[in-house]
């Protein structure tokens, strides 16, 4: 998970977070005990329809701002490590 999220963690931290994440998952698992058969899944609590916008363009970010957080770039493209070389 740390590797997917690009986080650098020490061995201690890995242990500690593993413990904490397990607790969270156990806690959520308690919800499984409730019988929800016949109850429609609720994805949104507010019963209104999605607002929509007209099809007009607005200025985009200046490329330098769009790339401000990029660890590496090539001109105005983001650079990323080789993709298929495994995680």
């Amino acid at each position: 998970m740390a590797s997917l999220a690009r986080l650098e963690l020490s061995a201690d931290e890995v242990d500690r977070y593993r413990e904490q994440l397990s607790q969270i998952l156990d806690y959520v698992a308690d919800l499984d005990a409730i019988d929800t058969s016949g109850v429609e899944p609720l994805s949104h609590a507010v019963p209104i329809s999605a607002p929509m916008r007209d099809d007009s363009t607005r200025p985009s970010l200046p490329p330098d701002e769009a790339l401000a957080n990029a660890p590496a770039r090539d001109e105005t493209a983001f650079r990323v490590p080789p993709i298929l070389a495994g995680e």
Partner: peptide, 18 residues
């Protein structure tokens, strides 16, 4: 889902926003 242009052929990342 945003107001960025869909025009084809702009230089990389010129039509992007948050």
């Amino acid at each position: 889902f945003c107001g960025c242009s869909t025009t084809f052929g702009a230089p990389p990342n010129h039509h992007t926003c948050p």
